[in-house]
């Protein structure tokens, strides 16, 4: 079955860094779309991902799993995945799974851009 990948707004920062706006929810309904969108970026040479959680009210385990997959894919290629403007519901999930040890967090997308530039 074909899947549309138009649901995520992606904005280049450098030739190998992008910001992906996660939007209101990343869960079992759109995790496959996220995976496909991120995959397209990896194929075109992107290695570092800034995920913007500013408006995100829902991050379930399927959604988090899709972020983990991305991390496992890019980390052997010296890539990274960082979190920006982490909303309260996302913070709860990150705390519970203790994944702040792997995903650096920044107060804003601008701060993340600055650090990754």
């Amino acid at each position: 079955m074909h899947t549309t990948t138009m649901n995520f707004q992606i904005e280049p920062v450098t030739h190998d860094t992008v910001v992906i706006r996660i939007g209101k929810a990343l869960d079992f309904r759109n995790a496959a779309d996220f995976k496909a969108a991120a995959q397209e970026q990896v194929c075109s040479g992107v290695r570092s991902f800034i995920l913007d959680f500013n408006d995100t009210g829902i991050l379930d385990s399927t959604g988090l799993g899709s972020i983990f997959s991305l991390y496992r894919q890019v980390s052997p290629m010296s890539g990274q995945v960082v979190f920006a403007s982490v909303s309260r519901p996302v913070q709860v999930v990150v705390q519970l799974t203790r994944t702040y040890k792997v995903f650096r967090q920044f107060p804003s997308v601008d701060a993340a851009r600055e650090a990754l530039r």
Partner: peptide, 8 residues
């Protein structure tokens, strides 16, 4: 608790 399995 520690980090979830399969990441690190």
């Amino acid at each position: 608790s520690d980090i979830i399995l399969g990441l690190d």
